[in-house]
Write a protein that binds this DNA or RNA. Structure first.
Lengths: 128, 128
DNA sequence: GGAAAATAGTTACCTAGGGTAACAGTTATC
DNA sequence: GATAACTGTTACCCTAGGTAACTATTTTCC
C-alpha cells in the first residue's frame, strides 16, 4: 500500500536536482516513446484531470521542450518534443537509469519483469 | 516507472470522499498496526521529512484521532490512536478493502505476494 | 562533571501537483 | 441544423512535500 511512496519522493528529489519535475518528466517520457500526444491522451496516461496536464504542458512550452504540431481537429492540441526536449530527455535519462539500477540491486531480471507485469494488470484494472 | 501514479491518485480521491487524506491515513494505518510511534519513526516509515509529519500529526490531533502518550525522553512526542481514531480507521478500512479487491481482480494471491515481496526489496534498497 | 555533538520536534517560507466548476470553441450525432 | 459530446482553458481551492533555522533535550566523551 504505502510501499511506493519513498520511491516517488526520492525520484522527485533526483529530478529536481536536474532541474526537472516529475510531472514534466512523465510527459517527456511519453512523448519520447510515443512521438506525439494530445492533452487528453496525456491526462489518461498520467491518470490526472485535464487542467493538471494543461499546467504542466504550459511549463514545458515555456521551457521550449515541446512544440505544437498541426492537427485536423481544431479542438485538440497535439504536441511533440523539440530538439531541445529530446536532448534534455536523453541527458536526464542517465541519472534516472543509475537510480533505477541502484534500487533494483539484488532483484533478478525475471522478478523485475514479473513485478512490472502485475503492476500493469493492476493499472489496467484501475483505468477501466 | 509511472505505473503507480494512477493508483495513488485514485486512492487520494477515494479517501477524500470519506473525509480522509492519504498522509493522515498512512499514519492511522501505522498506529493501528504498530501501537504507538514517535514523529521520527513516522517520517522514516513514510519516507518524508520531519516537518511534513509534524503538520499531518497536528491535523490528526485537532481531529482527536490521536493522542500523546508520556515518554521518558522529553524530546520525543510519542503518539497513539484514540478510541475515535480506531473507529475511524476501521470504518475507512471498508471502502479501501473494496477498492483493493477491485483493482486486484484477476491477479492470483500468489502473484500479489510476489509483487509485494519485490516491492519491499526495492523499498529496502531505497531506504538504506 | 561539563562541553560538544547528536537527536526530536517545531516554525516559517516556498514549491509542485492535484482537484472541481464553469466556460468557449469545435466536431459528431441524428 | 439543433443538440450532444469532446478538447482545452481559466479561476480558485487544497494537500503534500521540501529546506533552513531554531529550541529543547539527551548522549558522548574528554
Amino acid at each position: 500500500m504505502m510501499l511506493y511512496r519513498p520511491f516517488e519522493n526520492k525520484l522527485n528529489v533526483l529530478l529536481s536536482e536536474h532541474g526537472m519535475q516529475r510531472a514534466q518528466w512523465t510527459i517527456l517520457y511519453y512523448l519520447y516513446h510515443f512521438g506525439s500526444a494530445t492533452l487528453v491522451e496525456l491526462a489518461h496516461y498520467q491518470g490526472v484531470e485535464k487542467p493538471t496536464v494543461t499546467r504542466t504542458v504550459n511549463r514545458l512550452e515555456e521551457l521550449a521542450y515541446i512544440e505544437q504540431v498541426p492537427s485536423k481537429d481544431k479542438r485538440e492540441k497535439r504536441i511533440m518534443l523539440t530538439q531541445l526536449g529530446k536532448k534534455v530527455y536523453v541527458e536526464t535519462r542517465v541519472p534516472i537509469d543509475e537510480f533505477e539500477a541502484e534500487i533494483l540491486k539484488g532483484i533478478t531480471e525475471h522478478e523485475q519483469l514479473d513485478a512490472i507485469r502485475i503492476m500493469e494488470e493492476i493499472r489496467n484494472n484501475i483505468m477501466k
